[in-house]
Design a protein around this nucleic acid. Structure first.
Lengths: 326, 326
DNA sequence: CTGTTAGCGCATTCAC
DNA sequence: GTGAATGCGCTAACAG
């Protein structure tokens, strides 16, 4: 069933059917005739032929580090919501935190496969930027700020700075458990924010009170153990994620270290897990879903207007105080 | 840059370039010439033209109820992993638990838009089945068993039956907090499994000890309050999700009800949140990611072999005993 | 408002 | 092995 048959059955030319399907510009009679035939036959225009002809696919490629992460899936949810309203479809590329895979998908999307790309990268190298140059469709970058592209990102640096500052109000001996700062932009920003806050508060950080780990709860537990075995005087803990904090909290429970009396904690994510435990973990709240929506809106706007203004949108955050802070 | 220009630059016909790009059947010299031109120009064949011509898109549509759910995103991760190895791309359709949207996406995918569909539905109505009949590409159904389709699903009924049975070993007064059973297949199966286990154990369920709620932690808290205010004698709680259990646990903590001494708990999901709390929640573990992989493998096999054998794969589960059981 | 005419870029016969 | 010819199904001028 193709446009020719529909045209024949409706007694019009196929151009008229095409117009019916697109802009309009068809008389009422013919419109009715065509509608009837289409309904009777259940005809649906071939997307592929349209794509070939019109060079638009109504597809947006979304490259993400890993869908299993709560923040990523929230963001994808926001993207999906906006795209579906705007009649775009979402081509998902999960790189599994693999930099090579990011490049691979950029290349796959490169030419006339998608109309645009939303790229949530881990850590963008020169190679990335070089490849992105060559990509012919607009790219919106999320989760980090890249001058040459439109992007939507959260202010990890200042969030970390502010969170750390809260610890210094009623704490002097501060420990840090983070994510690997070398391969994640957010991890790096949180670490710098933390360190700068310490410096500004005149606190000298002892390297043996700072750890990084990829594991979540278990990593938090283990690093807390390392720190408190050698530094029982530490009275405040900064964790780059709620899961790390929950792991550390378990260590404190098991060793009768009172939270927040003996140790206060602040973390990132404001996730369900952080408020499931007792005391609930004070945590930086980000707006992942909104970020996704904004990124999608930005891309759609570029697509519809035809020019890329390179907007940079820095999203706010909120430090949600709960029981883990003194 | 298209195949004609490549052919001209390489001094061959475009049919030869096409052969080079596909099966082979090209002499070594021409092969080398073509390769060189392609490398120099950075030519990439147009996917759209290929699609139109060959009727395959190398796209798989994945319809899910909501990406933000942990189990769903794990499953999508499994699907994505297998598809990427097999050189398929993933077109994601998030229906936001909206039945109409499921139908909409089935229709969008219906004709020559994707090569196949993985459909994770909420509750399949006659209308769904009717529409699925009309879809011309193979469909693999997940999360529930539908006779007419290949499917991968978990055994919620027996998992619930077994979990409930564990409660009856050391409990006589049992309460139930579930998800709405009317619009989710899993919710329904868990409820039946629970009820049948009760019946087999000769326990008469009081309706005032059974509640359903859509909310997570807060719903668990509220329903637990309702139950224990009127039925303080209840000594066991069955929750359809870990989050519900964690909410209930908070109520128990606040009211000095000892877990598991006074109330034992079993739940579903074996999620991070269930083991973050203390006592850790005993929970049914499912294999979402593996399910996703299996579903994708099943679909790819149908696509590659060309015939749909309608396999039904029921995945196992495991009840992970933790501190919340007596 | 409508029909005719040309391709979009590629894969696939079919002769050679 | 190779090239010429054909058309996948549709949209976009263009002339009427």
């Amino acid at each position: 069933m193709n446009i020719n048959e529909i045209a024949e059955l409706a007694g019009v030319s196929r151009a008229t059917v095409s117009r019916y399907l697109n802009d309009g510009y068809v008389s009422e009679e013919k419109r009715a005739a065509i509608r009837k035939v289409i309904e009777d036959t259940g005809y649906r225009p071939s997307q592929q032929a349209r794509n070939l002809r019109s060079k638009v696919t109504k597809l947006v490629g979304v490259i993400i580090p890993e869908i299993e992460s709560g923040s990523v899936s929230q963001m994808v949810s926001g993207i999906s919501e906006v795209l579906s309203v705007k009649d775009y479809q979402l081509l998902l590329a999960d790189t599994r935190n693999n930099t090579r895979a990011e490049l691979k998908y950029l290349r796959i999307f490169e030419k006339n496969q998608v109309d645009g790309i939303i790229f949530m990268g881990t850590m963008l190298s020169r190679e990335h930027l070089h490849l992105m140059e060559e990509v012919e469709v607009p790219i919106v970058v999320t989760a980090q700020e890249i001058r040459q592209y439109s992007c939507v990102f959260q202010d990890d640096y200042h969030a970390a700075y502010d969170a750390a500052k809260m610890l210094t109000k009623k704490g002097r001996h501060i420990a840090y458990i983070g994510e690997p700062a070398k391969d994640k932009a957010a991890g790096k920003a949180r670490k710098s924010g933390f360190l700068d806050a310490m410096a500004d508060a005149g606190i000298r950080m002892d390297r043996s009170c700072m750890y990084e780990t990829e594991l979540c709860m278990q990593g938090g537990y283990e690093k807390a153990a390392k720190i408190w075995k050698t530094h029982p005087e530490v009275d405040s803990l900064f964790c780059a994620t709620d899961s790390l904090a929950v792991g550390a909290l378990r260590y404190f429970h098991e060793h009768d270290i009172q939270v927040p009396q003996q140790v206060q904690i602040v973390a990132f994510g404001d996730t369900e897990i952080g408020s499931a435990v007792s005391p609930a973990i004070s945590s930086v709240h980000f707006y992942h879903k909104t970020m996704g929506q904004e990124a999608a809106r930005m891309l759609v706007e570029i697509l519809e207007s035809g020019d890329d203004l390179k907007k940079h949108l820095k999203m706010g955050y909120q430090i949600v105080k709960k029981e883990s802070l003194r």
